[in-house]
Design a protein around this nucleic acid. Structure first.
Length: 425
RNA sequence: GGAAGAAUGGCAGAGUUGGUUUAUUGCACCGGUCUUGAAAACCGGCGUACCUGAAAGGGUACCUGGGGUUCGAAUCCCUAUUCUUCCGCCA
């Protein structure tokens, strides 16, 4: 959620940013509506405050009159105060109404893209921030896609998931399951070594949490929901982990707060069917290790780059061909100010698969969550929040299986062998 | 699931016969004295948000959320949520 002060004081930047997101004029006009409402809010509050001040002063007098036994005069004042009540009520209602309207409008506005975000509408217009500069190796002639490899080596089964749950819920078996566990341990160890504190959060969250990180109201349809208890299954560990600091006031020297968590992620992926969803490319439940950082506003972009480096390091160690994209305004998420996507090339499918998304949300989430820090000047300020996948498992597994297949088995990358206990599938 | 109790400013913790408590006090924090330096001690400052003002300052709201009684509520009533304890169930 944007701050009204940003809309007021940096309107040109906001408008420019919204144009990058290809928002229509109506959305941009909302900015003026918000400012107008805020002006009204101020004037209503001024009137309301002075009436309340008058009432408070009179009530105090009444108290003193009672004490000194002047009942008649007190009764007279009582009537006077009572006459203020109606106006007070009216102003209070109007004040609340305006505040709600402003909030509703603010919630519908996306974050302002960072200046470095390129213009563009579709994923094709994303900027290649770092290309894969080596040759992509060729697979042998009988190379298979990961869903065929899964069958050949009995690594995971989607039909069994259908039997248990429905489509998009893979069941991992044998070495396939071990590989999952190995990757999770590897990613967590790498994050811990990089200074992230490991967290094991709940997998269900309440609506306050879902709202805090921006899943509500924008992405309600994407989450699984338990109606009876009014709880949501997390679509990413970002939600519970970032919300650990909802309504928090931290000291400036606690920053940066660096956390990591492994969780399964649940996404309804409503409306997405077709070729992209084959195998593990898009599933309803997948495992992911997430990194979350709460940072000082002046340092958040440096921190974003260290997170990008961290994720890049993981892909290098896994020896996968990857590239880094800087998302264009049209492809960037609602909450983000700047996002880098990581894609791994799948040699069997001959296409890039998104395996990580690293973003700076600036104060957008912090404003919703009221996540503040006490700065060195003693003032409370909104912190910046950042997060990234480090990494998402399902597609990493898909590309590992495909890219590492040989005529006589699938080779496990060196760094994973101490976790898997085997070198080859 | 049943019963009882509780929810106060960054933390701890007073205050519940309604009106100089719009919040005692301690810790933490900031400034100062002392000291070679630090600690201790002592002195002073210190909640949050919003409105107003060039500033100094002034005002309003906030004692878990929502509603009510009253001229006036942290304090009384209703309601929701959460926590604690006991009982029941259970890994």
């Amino acid at each position: 959620m944007l701050e009204v002060s940003i809309i007021r004081n940096q309107k040109d930047r906001v408008v420019e940013g919204f144009q990058k997101r290809n928002l229509n004029d109506a959305a941009i006009a909302e900015l003026d509506n918000i400012i107008a409402l805020d002006d009204e809010r101020k004037s209503v509050q001024t009137s309301l405050d002075s009436i309340l001040a008058e009432g408070n002063a009179l009530s105090k007098e009444i108290g003193e009159l009672f004490k000194s036994g002047k009942q008649a005069e007190a009764a007279e004042l009582k009537e006077k105060v009572a006459s203020l009540k109606e106006t007070t009520k009216e102003l209070e209602n109007r004040h609340k109404e305006i505040k709600d309207q402003i909030e509703e409008k603010l919630l519908s506005l996306p974050n302002v893209p960072h200046t470095s975000v390129p213009k563009g509408k579709t994923p094709e217009e994303n900027e290649v921030f770092k290309a894969w500069d080596k040759e992509i190796p060729q697979l042998h002639a009988n190379a298979l896609a990961h869903w065929d490899l899964a069958e050949k080596y009995d690594l995971f089964s989607l039909p069994l998931g259908v039997q248990l749950t429905g489509s998009g819920f893979p069941v991992y078996k044998g070495k396939g399951a071990k590989l999952q566990r190995a990757l999770i341990s590897f990613f967590l160890d790498e994050a811990t070594n990089a200074g992230f504190q490991e967290i094991i959060p709940p997998l269900l969250v309440n609506r306050h949490s879902a709202r805090g990180t921006g899943q509500l109201p924008d992405k309600e349809g994407q989450m699984y929901y338990c109606e009876k208890d009014d709880l949501y299954l997390i679509p990413t560990a970002e939600v519970p982990v970032t919300n650990l600091y909802r309504d928090a006031l931290v000291s400036v020297d606690e920053l940066p707060i660096k956390m990591t968590a492994y969780t399964p992620c649940f996404r309804r992926e409503a409306g997405s069917y077709g070729a992209d969803v084959k195998g593990l490319n898009r599933v309803h439940q997948f495992d992911k290790v997430e990194v979350v950082v709460i940072e000082h506003p002046e340092k958040s972009y440096d921190t974003l780059m260290t997170m990008v480096d961290h994720v890049e390091g993981l892909l290098k160690k896994l020896e996968l061909p990857y590239r880094i994209l800087r998302l264009c305004g049209g492809d960037m998420g609602f909450n983000s100010a700047l996002t880098f996507d990581f894609e791994v090339f799948s040699m069997a499918q001959k296409k890039w698969l998104e395996v990580s998304s690293v973003s700076n949300f600036e104060s957008f989430q912090a404003n919703r969550m009221v996540l503040r820090f006490k700065d060195t000047d003693g003032k409370n300020k909104l912190a910046h929040t950042l997060n990234g996948s480090a990494l998402a498992l399902a597609r990493i597994v898909a590309s590992l299986l495909e890219n590492n297949q040989t005529e006589d088995g699938i080779v496990i990358p060196e760094v994973l062998r101490r976790y898997t206990g085997f070198e080859k599938i």
